[in-house]
Amino acid sequence: MAPTTGDDMILSIDDIKKAASVKLPSIVREFYNAGSTNQITVTENTTAYSKYRLRPRVLVDVSKADMTTTLFGQRIDFPLCVSPAGIQAMAHPDGELATSRACAKRQVHMGISSFSNYSVEDVRAAGLEVGPIHHTMQLYSMQDREAQLRIIKRAENAGCAAIFLTADSPVLGVRYNEYRNDFRTSEGLGFPMLEKTSDAIRAQTHDDGFTAVNSDSHSWAKEIPWLRSVTKMQIWIKGVLTAEDVQLAIKYGCDGVIVSNHGGRQLDETSPTIDALPECTRAAKGKIRIHIDGGIRNGTDIFKALALGAECVWIGRPMIWGLAYDGEAGVTKTLDILYEEFKRCMQLCGCNTIADITPASLGIIRRDGPLARL
């Protein structure tokens, strides 16, 4: 057998990350990969998955295993979607357009960041050229309500299914690498949804630019009723880590929450999202949809998140690495790797449908030795 070379050697998300790292300038690589302050949360988001162990069932016919699920009224290939990550054109010139096309090809949904380098209209069109796909529009609470409303209306008119309100960012997290590198968005890249040109963006640090736009006086009572009054899109809260906030999301009539710590980029030393998930799932009591992002690096992680109560997972950095590695083809490769790993994990655990994945599928490592069932 001939030795494998090139793309044939890209077998895992870690391979994608390594290939991307070679191509990205150090300042850009650190912007994408780093977390806040001491990097504890950004690291533990991934490592926390390893304490959960699989409990496979054997002699199960899994020849017709079905990974599909329904989200926003549309069937998707497997319970994974792509998170609204900003400034994707620093990873590859096609940025969010390439990501949208790859998502449509793999038949999963995509979130669009307010800091997208392409407009919601163009990102939507790029995906729909390939196949049916839903998009969500990520939104911050903004000082300029009229500008915020323009984003919402553009997203709604473009056909977005939901608003993802980022709730964990009244201020930007402390990111040492951005200060040390004097990080600024690469020249020539604008933020069309925020109506900002490249020159205007580069005239400020990333922190100052965020502070100039974002409102730190947001609240449940202010944001959710206002959003309900101006849009018919679903309203999801991104950045929830506690039962208390899940209960508030239910109280204010939100459609779903994303259990998220902003990829470890906001407040360091918060709980890894996979560890916060069970508390949030219990608090939901089936009254609100629960999704998760943060630290997912293989198909087994997806399986574990579903076993702990998530309906769907969202990925950010793996998609960015795929984009940097090889544009649309790189994102497609990333999604295909995760799809195949998840499928095999389901089959090897004796699960034929998403409904078969339950807490009984997992145990947790105990210091005294025996695996503890959940």
Results as ranks from 00 to 15, higher is better:
residue 158 A to M: 07
residue 223 E to F: 00
residue 98 A to W: 03
residue 188 G to S: 11
residue 77 D to E: 15
residue 56 P to F: 03
residue 190 G to F: 01
residue 27 I to M: 13
residue 342 F to E: 03
residue 113 S to T: 11
residue 351 C to D: 06
residue 223 E to G: 04
residue 54 L to M: 02
residue 224 I to V: 08
residue 374 L to P: 03
residue 163 I to P: 06
residue 64 K to S: 14
residue 69 T to A: 10
residue 83 S to H: 05
residue 350 G to R: 00
residue 218 H to I: 04
residue 180 R to F: 15
residue 280 C to A: 08
residue 162 A to P: 05
residue 193 M to D: 09
residue 276 A to I: 09
residue 363 G to F: 01
residue 299 G to Y: 08
residue 254 C to D: 08
residue 156 E to D: 03
residue 102 A to T: 10
residue 174 V to L: 13
residue 150 R to Q: 11
residue 57 R to Y: 08
residue 164 F to H: 09
residue 20 A to N: 02
residue 206 H to F: 15
residue 205 T to P: 07
residue 239 G to R: 06
residue 351 C to S: 08
residue 130 V to R: 10
residue 164 F to N: 09
residue 327 G to E: 10
residue 169 S to R: 10
residue 191 F to N: 07
residue 126 A to T: 07
residue 350 G to C: 10
residue 218 H to N: 06
residue 108 V to T: 15
residue 349 C to R: 04
residue 30 E to G: 13
residue 218 H to D: 07
residue 85 A to D: 09
residue 142 M to H: 09
residue 232 K to M: 06
residue 262 H to Q: 12
residue 77 D to G: 11
residue 315 I to K: 01
residue 286 G to C: 06
residue 16 I to Q: 00
residue 316 G to K: 09
residue 204 Q to M: 15
residue 343 K to Y: 14
residue 164 F to C: 10
residue 156 E to G: 06
residue 13 I to S: 02
residue 254 C to K: 06
residue 159 G to A: 11
residue 185 T to V: 15
residue 246 V to A: 02
residue 312 C to P: 04
residue 271 S to H: 11
residue 8 D to N: 11
residue 78 F to R: 03
residue 149 L to I: 00
residue 133 I to R: 13
residue 289 R to L: 12
residue 73 G to C: 07
residue 159 G to E: 11
residue 199 D to E: 15
residue 7 D to K: 10
residue 193 M to H: 09
residue 340 E to V: 02
residue 251 K to R: 12
residue 79 P to H: 07
residue 279 E to H: 12
residue 32 Y to A: 13
residue 264 G to H: 04
residue 115 F to W: 14
residue 308 L to M: 07
residue 73 G to H: 01
residue 356 D to M: 04
residue 38 N to I: 13
residue 258 I to K: 02
residue 80 L to A: 09
residue 247 Q to K: 14
residue 45 N to W: 09
residue 172 L to P: 07
residue 275 D to F: 01
residue 215 S to T: 00
residue 332 T to C: 11
residue 40 I to N: 14
residue 246 V to D: 04
residue 354 I to D: 10
residue 319 M to H: 11
residue 213 V to P: 01
residue 115 F to A: 12
residue 22 V to D: 12
residue 11 L to I: 04
residue 178 E to L: 15
residue 256 G to C: 01
residue 76 I to V: 15
residue 227 L to W: 03
residue 353 T to L: 10
residue 279 E to F: 12
residue 37 T to F: 08
residue 23 K to C: 05
residue 349 C to N: 13
residue 216 D to M: 12
residue 220 W to V: 03
residue 22 V to S: 12
residue 360 A to I: 02
residue 271 S to M: 14
residue 229 S to C: 07
residue 20 A to Q: 03
residue 196 K to I: 13
residue 178 E to R: 14
residue 23 K to T: 00
residue 144 D to W: 02
residue 180 R to W: 15
residue 335 L to Q: 04
residue 72 F to I: 11
residue 303 F to E: 03
residue 11 L to T: 04
residue 34 A to Q: 14
residue 107 Q to G: 12
residue 323 L to E: 05
residue 103 C to I: 13
residue 320 I to L: 15
residue 373 R to C: 00
residue 36 S to M: 07
residue 163 I to D: 05
residue 117 N to M: 11
residue 336 D to M: 00
